[in-house]
Simulated scan of single mutants.
Amino acid sequence: MAIRFTDEASELALLRDPQLQLGQLYMDGRLLVEEGDIYEFLALIKDNTLSEGLTFGMIVRGIGRMIEAQFRNRVPINHNRKNVSHHYDLDEKLFSLFLDEDWQYSCAYFNPPGISLDEAQIAKKRHIVAKLLAEPGQKALEIGSGWGGMAMYLSESSGIDVTGITLSTEQLKISRERAARRGLANSVRFELQDYYYLPPTKSYDRIVSVGMFEHVGRLNYKKFFNKVNDVLADDGVMVLHSIGQPYPAIYNNPWIEKYIFPGGYIPSLAEVLPAIEKAGLLVSDVEILPMHYAYTLRHWRERFMANREKAAALYDDRFVRMWEFYLAASEMAFTHEAFHIFQIQIVKKRQAVPDTRDYIYEREAELRAFEQSRLPLDKIAV
């Protein structure tokens, strides 16, 4: 492992504020990794970081960020649309460079181990849909519908009507195009809609949310689950899939907050479960997936770097370094900081789900049979 600073000022900047400046210097090309790669460098730092190494300036900046985070969380301004647009309204060609064929931009499920990224993303959809206990004729809501892959899989596999909501105009456009191409315009619809403003008069038998809860913000958990309670049918089932961290964070990583996910926050189960209970909902199942996102991010980073010239043509070299750092730092959070994925199954009535988990594996077997006859989108004639 070997790194090099291009100027003396960059060394001083890193010393004063490593949390922000490490990623910023790498983006700007002022910190060069000449042997190894940025993930290996970040892992080396994490393996050798001691709390005793904090300087007075780092402590002061940390306190300042704590105060700023508390203030920002309490300002009653809805920045959801702006924050989502910052990341998800990037050129669609960028995401095609590293995602699977269905554009699943969330943790895959590598079961069995060693399968490809495309297979693991199908396994993720299969696993979640099995937990939903979806049946023909039901109505489902997807909160944070991405590019539409989960909604389309859910509708086609289970014969139900699905409404997906998103705050990304780019994702909305593409998901509608994809649903029309699959002939699902009458059973799958996508809307530009904030979950908070869903009318309480609507009721859904099933609700699913994958990779969206990280954008809700910890002071909005009560609002989120109260809304779920409003729109979930009395015998309904919800599956919530989110990144989790082992304990509540005092403030966000400043580099991620500034450049990647403004307004985002990774929850801990200790913060989420009380909010579910206070909303009058019941937790019927919790599953932890410890390392699956590390594997997913490794695939994404390798694919992205294999297409780095195409990414640079879309944006520039600085953007490529920013995304390489983002993917590497995110991977390291799972390999070195005990970040994980949690899937929480939520109901209003305990009788809404079976007493044992056997139904999940039985339904997955049925879904595998469905997948054998389902044509990939690129095989469907335009």
Rank of each mutant, 00 (worst) to 15 (best):
M1Y: 07
M1H: 12
E8N: 10
A9Q: 14
A9K: 15
S10I: 03
L14F: 10
D17A: 15
Q21D: 06
L22C: 06
G23H: 05
D28Y: 03
G36I: 01
I38T: 00
E40I: 04
N48D: 09
L50W: 13
G53D: 15
T55L: 12
I63E: 15
G64C: 10
A69W: 11
R72Q: 15
R74F: 12
R74S: 13
I77L: 15
I77Y: 12
N80W: 07
N80A: 13
K82W: 07
S85K: 15
H86W: 11
D89G: 05
L90N: 12
L90C: 02
E92V: 10
S96F: 01
S96I: 05
L97S: 11
S106C: 08
S106N: 03
C107A: 11
C107Q: 00
P112A: 01
I115L: 04
E119Q: 15
I122V: 11
A123W: 06
K124F: 02
K125E: 04
K131Q: 12
W147M: 10
S157V: 00
I165N: 03
I165H: 04
T169R: 15
T169E: 14
E177M: 12
A179Y: 04
R181C: 07
R181N: 02
A185K: 14
S187H: 13
V188R: 08
F190E: 10
L198Y: 05
L198G: 06
P199W: 00
I207F: 05
H215C: 05
V216M: 04
N220K: 13
F224C: 03
N229A: 13
N229F: 05
D235Q: 10
V237W: 03
S242V: 06
S242M: 11
P246S: 09
P254Y: 01
E257R: 13
F261K: 11
P274M: 13
L289K: 11
P290F: 10
L314I: 15
Y315C: 06
Y315I: 01
F319H: 11
F325K: 09
L327N: 03
A329Q: 10
H336T: 08
V347N: 13
V353T: 13
Y359C: 00
R363H: 00
E364H: 01
F370E: 01
S373P: 07
R374T: 07
L377T: 06
K379L: 09
K379Q: 14
A381V: 14
